[in-house]
Design a protein around this nucleic acid. Structure first.
Lengths: 350, 350
DNA sequence: TCTATTTGCGCAAACGTTTGCAGAGACGGT
DNA sequence: ACCGTCTCTGCAAACGTTTGCGCAAATAGA
């Protein structure tokens, strides 16, 4: 249809100067304008269908009311609820979100970061950082605030909101222990990711506390949090020397892959080997067997990250917590059972 | 860190005019600049860490290299793969995506549309339109191209890329028929959505072609595509007068809800009643029973929609297909079985 | 009534680009 | 040697806002 209607058009229409129109439409500056003019300008704006041009105002004010959200992979159903949490605070505050996938590729992440900055985002929520992430740490973003969500970078200085992964893993491991398992393997996430190492460490420490022995090969690392890697790791475990009665997986998708592998090998979960996951992504209650997992507060992770970012954007000098940790809880379904007697006997022999 | 470095800075550094710098950095205009200057400018730009300010360029050129994506709900796992498809074409072309959820609320959709326009998006992919959608139809977007994905609006003039829902429903229904079912109910989507009515119509027509009788109440409408509504509809069906041996659902989430309802009522799927879905969202192969459903090409829907939009943005006067329909295929899992003998006998009585 | 203050508005610059136009010099053709 | 053409670069305006400053009129204070 017609060209954009601008402040100038309204100015012409109402017979006042464009700067006056601008002020009349700005709830802050409005107080220095007579009520009568404000009224006239507002109705004119409405009638003419005025829509502010955020490009222009952004150019002038250096604020675009846009934030960037970086995800490893939006297809991972862990993230959509987080996004909802983010938007639940950012949208009421007037911000739009531009979304990018990094595919866990550092180079890509760097490129995407550049792109977000080019577009002038006011802040960034990064749910896809590697533990050491030069583009984030080096403050390439200039003074654009960044917070990480769900993961964190090793270096200090980038606020993060994450989950209490250590106690989640501990709870899962204890649950397996309590069910009678003594030979438990860990399918770990990538060492390049904070979630990968903190979960692995938590596994090791809890195992030690429980006096579990961790034979060589009881922990197998994966490169990505996906079903294929989970399957691969599980196969390695099944075919390896050790005999395990349970797989504690660093993530639900790994667990799903592990269960597939078991099935393919003619093994039953949980009868032959118990499996646990992490995150509690949607639909896990419908699958068979229902996956016992650690539920994280996905929505809240997003919400808190956004609130943090909002504060950083609005009051650049305010202090914010460097790490905020959200609670988790174990949700017990059907993928954990007592180990088979044979296995238990083997335990006793050892 | 330091302030943005601008063309002006590079100009000062290299001793040429800012307009020359601009041209030297623009692969089109570059040919009118001497190689030597281009070289100098480029290295200076690199060294100084120049990043183009898209706000400023967008203001001047009226192109922001951003597109808007409107979804009903990103939490619905149907959409992330579509988004991937969209980005697979838009990102290489240099576009960033700003994403909004409409929650299937028309007012919200209108607001979000405004917001996208305020931000100056070059085009919009709307995966959340209602059948009659004033904000879309009225071309409020001015000359910003819009295409709908997965759904369409009734009115002509808005290009859509959708799936061949009619044959998908037909295939599902025939599959049930071939398994021996004769008393089949349909849990339908919202009448306000193109997917809701075209699937319901396809159900009715195929049923007629198969000489199935559709008693009063055999089709129950839902308001939203979610598990809760599916459960509600299934309960109505179970508690109603008719006795059905199969539920053909307009969508996977409805089907999931229906299966829950059956389970709650002590009924088994598929032994007591068979169920089919639509879309084939992820993880459906892991659930129990594996849901027989109609697979749509989610990624491709996104990809084609983006390609269409790209064409419209690049060549505003080019003709584009008003509807492009992608093929579907039935994926058979475990949620359909032959009806119980008792039911079959009841059939014969009738 | 005269000065001091406040109120309401206009002026113009600025944000960082892009681009039509024009001018200067180089160069080739006659 | 002259003219025309081409190549390269600079100039300045424009995109639509916001905002510091200043001016005039209105108001208050004495």
């Amino acid at each position: 249809m017609a060209r954009q209607v601008t402040l100038k058009d309204i100015a012409r229409e109402t017979g006042v100067h464009v700067s006056t129109v601008s002020r009349a439409l700005d709830s802050n500056a409005r107080r220095s304008i007579s009520a009568e003019v404000v009224e006239r300008v507002e109705t004119a704006a409405k009638n003419m269908g005025y829509r502010p041009n955020r490009l222009a105002s952004g150019l002038r004010t250096r604020r675009t009311m846009m934030v960037g959200i970086m995800l490893p992979d939006i297809t991972n159903s862990l993230f959509p609820p987080m996004i909802r949490g983010i938007e639940s605070v950012l949208e009421p505050a007037g911000y739009a979100s531009i979304l990018v996938n990094t595919d866990n590729d550092d180079r890509r992440e760097a490129r995407m970061l550049q792109m977000l900055l080019n577009h002038g985002v006011d802040g960034i929520i990064d749910a896809a950082p590697s533990r050491v992430d030069p583009s984030i740490e080096n403050r390439e973003a200039g003074d654009v605030p960044i917070v990480t969500a769900n993961r964190r970078v090793d270096a200090a200085g980038v606020p993060a909101v994450i989950s209490d992964e250590a106690s989640g893993i501990a709870a899962a491991l204890r649950h397996l222990y309590d069910a009678g398992h003594r030979r438990i393997a860990h399918i770990a996430g990538s060492d390049a990711l904070s979630t990968g190492v903190t979960r692995r460490r938590a596994f090791e420490e809890t195992a030690r506390a429980l006096n579990l022995q961790l034979p060589e090969g009881a922990i197998v690392s994966t490169l990505r949090y996906d079903e294929g890697e989970g399957r691969r790791a599980a196969e390695a475990l099944i075919d390896g020397d050790g005999v395990y009665t349970a797989f504690l997986c660093a993530n639900d998708r790994l667990a799903l892959g592990a269960i597939e592998a078991l099935r393919d090998r003619g093994l039953n979960c949980p009868a032959d080997v118990s499996v646990t996951g992490f995150n509690d992504i949607p639909l896990l209650d419908h699958i068979s067997p229902g996956l016992t997992t650690v539920r994280i507060l996905k929505f809240e992770v997003g919400r808190f990250a956004a609130e943090l970012l909002l504060r950083m954007m609005l009051e650049p000098d305010s202090q914010v917590p460097s790490i905020t940790t959200l609670p988790v809880n174990l949700v017990i379904r059907e993928s954990v059972a007592a180990p088979r007697k044979a296995a238990r006997d083997a335990e006793k022999m050892a």
